[in-house]
């Protein structure tokens, strides 16, 4: 009969209306500033720079190789290389970024910079409450704002941070082994000058 289904539909919506006052399970809304969802493991928003140790300037892993700057699709990274070299966390003398700016109003969160970085230095953060009333300076993050300790990386992406630490440890070990081998070879060469030159490891 005409109108029967309308009454049925009205009953459904009425049940939803009253049900939403009775049972909280119906309401899927998370009331954001007070309640928050736990972020997913793969959450990524904008890049940050990892540093080791306590001093953000000394411990910065970045060596200003500018690969990320060149790969960035929207060109939101701006790096100025240093003229001199500073010892990095391993004690090796390296270049360091004089300026490292990311314009997060341009950044599209693609994380290509993370993939191309050979030094495990740039990583994605989960921070998303970055709104500001200054849309030019407020959204242009400088080196100091970008630098965050490795502990922060462990906090936001525990598994990735562990993997990255392992990679770095392996590289350090390799470098140490190489240095050791080089030192041994040097010692050997001093002892027996006729010996062949050492083959590079790896």
């Amino acid at each position: 009969m005409l109108g029967e289904q309308i009454v049925k539909g009205m009953a459904v919506t009425a049940r939803n209306f009253f049900g939403s006052y009775v049972s909280k399970e119906r309401l899927t809304t998370v009331q954001y500033p007070e309640e928050r969802l736990v972020p997913k493991e793969n959450t990524r928003q904008f890049p940050f720079l990892v540093y080791d140790g306590d001093n953000w300037e000394k411990g910065l892993r970045c060596v200003a190789c500018q690969i990320c700057e060149k790969e960035c699709p929207p060109k939101c990274i701006y790096i100025v290389k240093s003229k001199d070299k500073k010892p990095d966390y391993k004690g090796q003398p390296q270049l360091y970024p004089l300026t490292f700016d990311i314009d997060i109003s341009v950044c599209m969160s693609c994380s290509i910079c993370v993939e191309v970085c050979p030094f495990e230095s740039i990583k994605m953060d989960t921070e998303f409450e970055l709104s500001t009333d200054d849309r030019f300076e407020g959204l242009l993050l400088h080196k100091q704002e970008l630098a965050k300790p490795n502990a922060h990386y462990h906090k936001v992406h525990a598994q990735d941070a562990k993997d990255s630490d392992a990679v770095l440890a392996a590289e350090t070990a390799k470098a140490e082994a190489k240095a050791k081998a080089a030192a041994e070879a040097k010692a050997k060469a001093a002892a027996t000058p006729a010996a062949p030159p050492p083959t590079p490891a790896g």
Partner: peptide, 10 residues
Amino acid sequence: KGLGRIQNRY
């Protein structure tokens, strides 16, 4: 508010 409640929103 009413439309929200009908759609199980606040």
